[in-house]
């Protein structure tokens, strides 16, 4: 099947290369609502309308309104919004502009690729160059102990039990007394170091894959983009519980996949579902001993 034939076939179905990333974006807004009060109601209403009203998904007005809401959320709450809020604004703006051109697919693909590459480039810059405590492993050790969202992996991979975690948290909170020393097992140190190393490797790799002009230099290597992003999402978000950010990345990733690579679109949907599963199922608890009683 040629590219045009595949595009025509896709346009008729739900794997339309323009509509799929738009649907993934709106679904993310429904699965993980953002903002609060009237702002949240506005996001939810527009997301539902975009998904159910025929033809509205491709109307730039819908996306301009979402861009306005996202921008208002960042400005009104500055400097507190997290990075997800900014990325949502950039992506909605890119979609708005793309839908006003005669070639939305090309513009979505370009913007999806560049936004992903830049997000990972800045994230890698912070971790590897600007941060004082990422490379040493201190950040990951601290986070696995203090951030309760990481408790499952701290117990499963780090071998911590609830009492050890409580003691470590008390120490880090300064409540353990002046002479106390935090003693962490070799297993915990190895697990957090591996996690540090994996993040330090995969983030620059995704940045390079998406920012380098691979299609011109080595067309056969373009698949590295999808592979690196999907592997990143499937591994990192199994541990780091920020599904809204992951779904945005996946929507942008799907946007840069050419229409004739349907299998890759399925790959993006599969990982999108996997992130939902990570969110809904405490998978680490399957492997941990149950509390008595």
């Amino acid at each position: 099947m040629g590219v045009d034939a595949a595009n025509r076939a896709d346009r008729a179905g739900w794997l339309d290369p323009v509509e799929l990333p738009l649907r993934m974006t709106l679904a993310a807004l429904l699965l993980r609502p953002v903002g609060s009060g009237p702002l949240r109601a506005g996001f939810l209403t527009l997301a539902v309308l975009g998904l159910v009203v025929p033809g509205l998904l491709r109307r730039s007005t819908l996306w301009a309104l979402l861009t306005a809401l996202a921008a208002f959320r960042v400005i009104e709450d500055w400097p507190l919004p997290d990075n997800h809020a900014y990325l949502l604004g950039y992506w909605c703006l890119a979609i708005t502009l793309a839908l006003r051109t005669g070639e939305p697919q090309a513009m979505l693909a370009l913007n999806g690729r560049l936004l992903i590459g830049l997000v990972f480039a800045f994230a890698a810059l912070w971790k590897l160059v600007l941060s004082p405590d990422f490379w040493s492993g201190d950040f990951m050790r601290f986070t696995w102990i203090v951030d309760e969202r990481f408790e499952g992996v701290a117990r499963l991979f780090g071998g911590m039990d609830p009492a050890m975690l409580d003691n470590a948290r008390a120490f880090l909170a300064g409540a353990a007394g002046g002479d106390s020393v935090l003693t962490l097992s070799g297993r915990f140190l190895r697990a957090t170091w591996l996690s540090t190393l994996w993040t330090a490797l995969i983030e620059p790799m995704v940045a390079l894959a998406f920012l380098l002009p691979l299609a011109r230099v080595r067309p056969a290597w373009v698949g590295v983009r999808d592979a690196s992003l999907l592997v990143f999402c499937a591994t990192v978000y199994a541990v780091a519980p920020v599904p809204g950010f992951a779904w945005l990345l996946l929507a942008m990733g799907a946007a840069q996949v050419p229409g004739d690579r349907r299998r890759m679109h399925f790959g993006y949907l599969l990982v999108y579902g996997l992130i939902l599963a990570y969110q809904e199922i405490q998978w680490t608890s399957w492997f941990l001993p149950r509390a008595p009683g």
């Binding site: 800045f122 600007l130 405590d133 990422f134 201190d138």
Partner: peptide, 21 residues
């Protein structure tokens, strides 16, 4: 802003989340 004005690296749209304590 993070360098000169002590903005928290996690915030401000620089994608410095999960990079520092």
């Amino acid at each position: 802003l993070a360098t000169l004005a002590d903005l928290s690296p996690w915030l401000g749209g620089g994608f410095g989340m999960f990079a520092t304590i």
